[in-house]
Design a protein around this nucleic acid. Structure first.
Lengths: 310, 310
DNA sequence: TTCAGTATTATTATGTGAAAAGATACGTCA
DNA sequence: TGACGTATCTTTTCACATAATAATACTGAA
């Protein structure tokens, strides 16, 4: 596994996921042909990396290959796709991820020097620098003036969770209300059907991590549709942080379902261009999911006191 | 100048500014002694870089040096300090700044490769990579999947300015209203007196760039006091972007004064712990300064339609 | 004890060439 | 024309040696 990890460029893992998403967005079925050039154009890279991604997907049984003809989709259902994506995500446990989890478990201290990490993880200096670059992009670590790197408080302290919800409560409705908000209907439809699929699962079999994945995707989607580039940017950054640092908590099944149904309602309102309604539903959704997290309940976020413009 | 720039580490310029700020925050007067160890502790670095910063400041006439005794403050007034800081800022025209201004003037295209920049600016690859790192921290450029870097729209298009004000209108009041908002009274006092000094200048002699500097500092200060780390983070990022990309526009003198007086009023409310009032004043302040910018007036930001929670 | 000066050691930054990866062009087949 | 396979050139990454910088320990003086 370690060798495989070393042989497989991180880039290709990301690219492979992107390829898979595009294929399903285009409504491809098992047996369909995936033209290299089309994906090359869609991903904005040349054919060379696309081929690597295809090969990677073939190794994972997602694609099949025929000489002189190219690659073909080998899976059918969205469940299979989701599983494949999960497998790819497992592969890409980069050093950044390891460092993060070690920090989350408090196995390493708040302040680190690059060399210390080189020694601890027995990897090249460049690898560490790269990981730090990734982590600092999400503001998980910041470079102090000297030569030390400091971890920011992770999204696991009660205060942080509280701050996160407060942040989202101000930003997400505004993302919807910003002028030039434009829905990507295709992606919305895909999201909707994914959520409906999950809801169809029998009681108790919704996994928390599966829910979290789709939840983050939904909220990132809303952010991406926002017409305000600064609201979009800061929300996307925040969701990236949530995705990487949030911990699994056990949430009862019925609450997960409720949450997904709220997502669907918001999507419906947006599709009807009822932005005010969608924004209000978003506020309610966030407030409810706040109550849902046991550890954060009844802590000092002020009630509906006042708006941005009172 | 080019040689001096090459000899002077960028780090030390920043550090020198920090040192100067700390000295004035501590209320030091001309002739006072600056202990190396004290500043070393205050800045979180060892004595070595502090000495470089001291030496740099001495070369600029801000400090004086006596053998076997150390460095002493050589300037007295805040104007002298501001001037010194400005001189230091002029020194640090890094490659990032050059690239940014070339882009602002549309001398270079929206998409660039690192090598192209190496060729254009005749600097080492590392220098370019470093500049790109700085620019990408503020989301001025982003790395595309392939090997190209793309500039984001700069804060000079009408839409961007509009988006920026809308963003600040949602965030800045919330920064004040967040629980655990805590004023740094010392810094507030310093800011206040700086603004009062500017207001004392005779009519017409307030420079626009001087105003912008203190304006950004004031708003960054508010952000820094916020108890919500995500609101704080996203606002600070945004203000950094404003500082680096905003263009000088000519704004009539009386409007600058009005704006500064609004700042003072907000500070007063904050000092009295009247956070709701301060937040409302901030909303008004931002709305007014929006009207002040001629190019952005009467464009589609929705009126006081609704709050975050309504 | 605290300070600046000095020396020593640890860490990081930089330059260089080899190797990997990406972009592009061309050939061939359907 | 549009697809894949292959070849070639450009760009980037990586590893390593070396220079620059930061942290630390130690000194003597006030």
């Amino acid at each position: 596994m370690t060798d495989a990890r070393r042989n497989t460029r991180q880039n290709h893992l990301e690219l492979a996921q992107k390829v898979l998403n595009i294929a399903f967005e285009r409504g491809m079925k098992a047996g369909d042909h995936l033209p290299e050039q089309g994906f090359s154009a869609a991903c904005g890279v040349s054919r060379t990396p696309i081929r690597s991604a295809f090969k990677l997907l073939e190794e994972n049984g997602v694609l099949s290959w025929k000489e002189e003809e190219g690659y073909f989709l080998a899976i059918q259902t969205r469940e299979e796709q989701a599983e494949a994506v999960r497998r790819l995500e497992d592969l890409e446990d980069s050093l950044a991820r390891r460092i993060l989890s070690d920090r989350a478990e408090r196995r390493i201290g708040e302040v680190q020097s690059a060399s210390a990490l080189v020694r601890r993880y027995k990897v090249s200096r460049n690898t560490v620098l790269n990981a730090l670059k990734i982590l600092s992009r999400d503001d998980i670590v910041t470079q102090l003036p000297g030569r030390s790197w400091a971890f920011q408080p992770i999204l696991d302290s009660p205060n942080s969770v509280e701050d996160s919800v407060a942040f989202r409560l101000t930003m997400e409705p505004q993302a919807i209300l910003a002028p030039r908000f434009t829905m990507d209907f295709k992606r919305a439809g895909l999201l909707r059907s994914q959520m409906e699929d999950i809801l169809k699962l029998r009681n108790g079999s919704i996994t928390c991590s599966g829910f979290r994945a789709i939840d983050t995707e939904f909220h990132s989607f809303i952010a991406e549709c926002s017409g305000n580039r600064f609201i979009r940017g800061s929300l996307l950054t925040h969701h990236r942080l949530r995705r990487t640092t949030q911990k699994d908590a056990s949430i009862p099944d019925f609450r997960l379902r409720q949450s997904l149904e709220e997502h669907l309602e918001i999507l419906e309102s947006l599709e009807r261009n009822q932005f005010d309604l969608a924004a209000d539903q978003m506020v309610l959704h966030l407030r409810k999911s706040r109550v849902r997290r046991p550890e954060a309940a009844n802590r000092g976020i002020p009630p509906m006191k006042r708006g941005v413009q009172s």
